[in-house]
Nucleic acid binder design. Structure first.
Length: 279
DNA sequence: CAAAGTGAGTCAGTTACATCA
DNA sequence: ACTGATGTAACTGACTCACTT
């Protein structure tokens, strides 16, 4: 999964690539006893797993979205057992829950008739009508969603019966609800990444400035000179001074012919693991 | 046992309608 | 009354997995 942070990518001065991934953590909730065991769409969607966003931030010259997009023409899934009802607009509505239709014949007929009657009143020109769920229905669905974000067929049917909706409507509601949850989380993650980006930008600016100062100092004092205390910066995490024994220079890659040198190995700030912005 | 076909569940993306400012 | 923005129910096509042939 990737998140293309548009705000960040719109900033031409930033070559930072923001990545958002989901890590799976096992949940302790036991599988529901009445489950007709259904395999979820993918591991990341497994009910027993909770996805936790993990964030990465780095430099890249490549396009962010590296995941290969396959535009497959393969269609190994003809569309199911489709019982369709044609509505006034000519658009076709699907009702996949064939088995449930038998069981729920009476309630189904009631509900469908209530919907169709609306459309009949509007006449044949009416486009697809959209049912607005009542507050009670929404509240119950919401309550159910809190317990489990996916439903097995039995739960779906029970809920549908309880709410006087079709299983398909319940299914759609859960689909959309999951999508909204995901979207919301993505927005939260995006905000977080923006803040990280700002922090890194500030940090980068500060370091650039420090480099400039050190360069200026180097020019002014080409021979060994004790480093003025004001220009020393100490890394709070490793407690090493910015000046030290041999190693590569940071900016410009100049070799150290004098005694000025930077830290022996690059030390990157990771905003996700290190609360200090100085290291 | 392997491969192909099928059914079912889910998702991302989209469309269309209802509502509100 | 009209209009654009927003929220969301519903649709579509694609994908994965389990099961069957």
């Amino acid at each position: 999964m990737g998140l293309n942070n548009q705000d960040a990518s719109n900033n031409p001065s930033l070559q930072l690539i923001l990545g958002l991934a989901l890590t799976l953590t096992k949940q302790d909730t036991p599988p529901s006893s009445n489950n007709v065991v259904t395999k979820p769409y993918s591991s990341s969607n497994n009910n027993n797993y909770e996805t936790e966003p993990s964030l990465t931030l780095g430099l890249s010259t490549k396009s962010y979205y590296e995941e290969p997009l396959e535009f497959s023409t393969q269609t190994n899934s003809p569309h199911h057992s489709v019982v369709s009802a044609s509505f006034s607009s000519g658009r076709v509505k699907r009702e996949r829950d064939v088995s449930s239709e038998l069981e729920m014949e009476t309630t189904e007929i009631e509900r469908v008739s209530s919907r169709i009657s609306d459309e009949d009143e509007d006449g044949a020109t009416a486009a697809r009508k959209k049912l607005r769920l009542t507050k009670d229905q929404s509240a119950m669905l919401e309550e159910s969603f809190k317990q489990h974000s996916t439903l097995n067929p039995k739960q779906k049917q029970a809920l549908a019966r309880e709410l006087n909706l079709t299983p398909r409507q319940v299914e759609v509601w859960f689909q959309n609800r999951r999508a909204r949850t995901k979207l919301k989380q993505t927005e939260v993650d995006c905000e977080f990444l923006k803040k990280c980006c700002e922090t890194l930008t500030d940090e980068n600016r500060r370091l650039q400035k420090e480099v400039q100062e050190l360069k200026a100092l180097k020019l002014a004092q080409p021979l060994y000179m004790p480093m003025p205390a004001a220009t020393l910066s100490m890394c709070p995490s490793c407690e090493r001074l910015g000046g030290g024994g041999g190693g590569g220079g940071v900016n410009g890659g100049s070799s150290n012919k004098n005694n000025f040198s930077m830290a022996p190995k690059p030390h990157f700030y990771n905003p996700f693991t290190n609360s200090s912005a100085a290291c």
